[in-house]
């Protein structure tokens, strides 16, 4: 089970990012638990200033903008 955190204030891009990851995980059959982190202090504690950011199993893999679908697949397969 991969722990995925989507960092963002709840803007549309953040919602889209979470949905993209959920859809890809389902398509690939990877078990994920997606959490949306909206608390600013928590977001900044990851060193991320540009949202949405993506954290997988505690590691920041992406910051700023909706990630590319190919990149999402890469993280989920890893």
């Amino acid at each position: 089970m991969k722990q995925v955190k989507v960092l963002g204030s709840g803007c549309r891009n953040c919602v889209n990012t979470a949905k993209l990851i959920a859809d890809k995980a389902e398509a690939l059959g990877v078990a994920v638990e997606i959490e949306k982190v909206t608390d600013m202090a928590a977001i900044m504690s990851y060193g991320v200033m540009s949202t949405p950011g993506v954290v997988i199993d505690g590691v920041v893999v992406h910051a700023g903008g909706v990630p590319a679908p190919a990149a999402v697949e890469g993280w989920l397969r890893a």
Binding site: M40, A41, M44, S45, Y46, G47, V48, M49, G53, V59, V60, V61, H62, A63
Partner: peptide, 14 residues
């Protein structure tokens, strides 16, 4: 005030 209390992490952004 809360702004001054936030500490940024050093996580390396890819």
């Amino acid at each position: 005030d809360y702004v001054w209390k936030i500490r940024m992490g050093q996580a390396a952004v890819p």
